[in-house]
Amino acid sequence: MADLSSVFVRYDLKKEAGEKTVAVSKDELLQKVMTAVVDGDEDNIVDIVNQALKVHDPLVVIREGLVKAMNEVSRLWDEGIYYLPQTIISSDAMMAGLDVCEKKMGHSMEKKGIVITHTAEGDIHDLGQQIVNALLRANGFEVIDLGKDVPVDDVINAIKQYKPAMVTGTALMTTTMTAFNKIANRLKREGIELPFVCGGGAVSLEYVTSFDLGIWGKEAQQAPPMATDAVSGLSWEHMRDKYNG
């Protein structure tokens, strides 16, 4: 058999990630909450959070347990130790835990801000949008999910109704992404200015930055920091400079 070892290089093996570490709390119950989120233990998170709530205030469980754990998950993903599924499963566990805490409080946690998400008219490929939704919710944003194959009018009406800090659009095909330009033009005509983050499939930097309001989202994990910037009042022009410059 010929030596084929130089035909290709498995760079993935050379870059193999190190071991994961779990965020640490001095409190045993909060540690359990954090571990459950980091491990994405959706089966047991409700019981674990309920145990913690017997001792701690819901706000403490949220801030010192759930949120800190998600920060750890974000770090693990950023460093390439976690893959997307681990992050999504952790997000699911975090949201399940948050739901328990909010029921105990009797009201929802105040959200950082509202983001409207949608997939373009004519496009049923909304997996990218679903990932964006999960990441935004896990990071404390209220997501108005308009779903897939959404007409331009519906997006405009939702923006008027909910007054979000940011709107996102995803599309797989170049021939459906053309709805984004129409949405941006309608908003401008009606005097509405907000960051409109577009991404997915064949959606390109060149296209999205060809119209006002447009900011190109290269990857789903950019959504939480972008939403944070939008909520803090950064204009679409500044966001474009920051993320697409």
Binding site: Y83, L84, P85, Q86, I88, I89, D92, I124, D126, L127, Q130, I131
Partner: peptide, 16 residues
Amino acid sequence: SVGGKEISDYAIVRQD
């Protein structure tokens, strides 16, 4: 064809 995509989309990103 896209039958079952609502389940598979959920599952693929959760390694399920």
